[in-house]
């Protein structure tokens, strides 16, 4: 077993520890959200989904931004580790996007009265999700590692450019999706108890994202070193 293989195992182990911590934190966030955070007056209990939906969206957009940044660096430095990192972040981002796209309609049905609407924000998020599904498919379709990394990096950068559009849509359109309540020019418009739970959940989701990316990176490294190329 080479030292690099040991390194791959070490990253997986650390990634699993971080993921475990994140899952523990997630359980605590659920308790905090359900027991120690007031029920919103107009929306009632469905508003609690907000504490999963918003952090999942944050983690997804953060992951896709990391893919883009790693892709830019890859095209510049041509370091295969950056490509593997981008691949890992893209997969983690897809997981969080799925959470976001599932919890959104679960909230939308009782509050808007519909599971889905072709609103600018929702449509854009779906397009971003499809773009990264395409990123996965592209990685599976190109066999030469160098070519695959190059092509994937270009798609990754396109994804990074789309991320600000997702945030801007609520300002540019009359949309059903609520306006930002925390990431906006003026102060956050949430009571402290709700803001506290939201921030706790944001932190936990960021830890989970870190754990997922580390574990996936270690698995990819191990697969590469085991001889078979981790075919994307």
């Amino acid at each position: 077993m080479t030292s690099e293989t040991v390194g791959g195992h070490k990253v997986i182990r650390r990634g699993l520890v971080v993921t475990g911590l994140g899952l523990l934190g997630l359980a605590l966030v659920y308790v905090l959200a359900l027991q120690f955070t007031p029920v919103e007056r107009l929306q009632g209990l469905p508003q609690k989904i907000f504490y999963v939906h918003v952090p999942a969206a944050w983690s997804a957009l953060l992951a896709f931004s990391l893919v883009g940044i790693a892709s830019i660096l890859y095209l510049w430095l041509r370091d295969p580790r950056l490509d593997l990192f981008a691949e890992s972040a893209a997969e983690a981002g897809l997981v969080f996007s799925l959470v976001m796209l599932t919890t959104g309609p679960l909230w939308g049905k009782p509050v808007w009265g519909t599971w889905w609407t072709w609103d600018a924000r929702l449509t854009f998020t779906l397009i971003l999700f499809f773009l990264f599904l395409g990123y996965r498919a592209l990685r599976g379709a190109v066999s030469d590692p160098g070519e695959r990394a190059r092509f994937a990096a270009v798609v990754g950068i396109m994804g990074l450019v789309l991320v600000p559009f997702v945030h801007l849509t609520v300002y540019l359109f009359r949309t059903l999706h609520p306006q930002p309540i925390v990431l906006k020019p003026s102060e956050p418009s949430l009571p402290w108890e709700m803001l506290r739970t939201l921030f706790a959940s944001l932190a936990v989701h960021t830890i989970l994202l870190t754990g997922f990316v580390m574990t996936r990176y270690g698995l990819g490294k191990r697969a590469q070193l085991a001889g078979g190329d981790d075919a994307g």
């Binding site: 990096a153 950068i157 396109m158 450019v161 559009f165 359109f173």
Partner: peptide, 25 residues
């Protein structure tokens, strides 16, 4: 107005990015 603004912005951003990324492909 919203649709036109985002169309203009999107065109500007993606034409620039595509021109920059073309050599990498």
């Amino acid at each position: 107005g919203g649709w036109l603004r985002i169309l203009g912005l999107y065109d500007l951003v993606f034409v620039t990015v595509c021109l920059l990324l073309f050599p990498a492909l």
